[in-house]
Design a protein around this nucleic acid. Sequence first.
DNA 1: AAAAATGGTTATCAGATATAACTATTATCA
DNA 2: TGATAATAGTTATATCTGATAACCATTTTT
Lengths: 165, 165
Amino acid sequence: MTRAEDAKLEPNKAQSGVSQYSETLDGLFGYHLKRATNVLQLDLKHALKPFDLRMLTYTALVLIVDNPGLRQSQLAEAMDVERPNMVVIIDTLENRKLIIRDRVPTDRRAYALNATLAGRRLCEKATMAVKQHEERLLHQLSPEMRQTVIAALTLIRKVGGGVAP
Amino acid sequence: MTRAEDAKLEPNKAQSGVSQYSETLDGLFGYHLKRATNVLQLDLKHALKPFDLRMLTYTALVLIVDNPGLRQSQLAEAMDVERPNMVVIIDTLENRKLIIRDRVPTDRRAYALNATLAGRRLCEKATMAVKQHEERLLHQLSPEMRQTVIAALTLIRKVGGGVAP
DNA sequence: AAAAATGGTTATCAGATATAACTATTATCA
DNA sequence: TGATAATAGTTATATCTGATAACCATTTTT
């Protein structure tokens, strides 16, 4: 949560000016992870703004485009979002005619979610924009470095994935 | 946001069962970052629960302990939190007598934040717990891998730090 | 001395997230 | 088969985080 890069040059100058620094936080992996995620998420927000999408609506749209016929409960599980919260996300996408709730013939309780042509087009454009924004932030990282990081992040997810209540 | 590791084994089985998968999301660096951060943050939450601290209160406490005399506005800036939101965080820490708002003799508008003995002790214990929890999630990552990841995350922060509005 | 800027506060709002309770339908099994 | 349980989706609601506007007291600027 901080922006104290310069602090490293001059630690513990809290009284004087702008620089705060914490050895403790700097020693926590999660702290660095969180800060970088914030940066990337803020950037994502701006990347999606022209399309009037937010992170959650964009993610839902992508998953529906990539998984035609998906049901709401599956989508909710895939996004780690509670079903009640999923409803409003689907609602906004449906109201914009980016997706439709088709009925499932074999189960009249469920909806099969499908993207419309407009939805697929918007999804494609938005994804291009997101990738461009990401590239701007990541251009300093070599492909190998990126792969290492992604591998590490995937490992963390695997370890912690099913542990917490 | 998803938990679709197994999806990689069998992509595009949305209709059948539990596995959803998105090439698109998987190609986004920020997606992996966000998912891993969620895991780590959930873990952090549990690690801090015994101390009745949440991420923001913990972070604030650490920064005050590591930067005695810090002012609220400096802390807010360091945490990327708006000043109004900082107030309630400081309030809860002060109510628990973990910190005190000392007056700044040279500026009667400002408060100099200082941790109490109890605050420093709780901070130390909480940090030990957080580190233990982190270690459990990161034990698969070699020290070199961790360093690479942290270096990458720091780079991202540097690039994106001052760009977004 | 007047005007502008700063530190902290209050009130308020939007977004994300979590839970309980409801309906309609489907699945279970005695 | 018929009662019961489970599931898909919904509504309503509460909490937490995050952001903005407006305010008071004080300091700085001019």
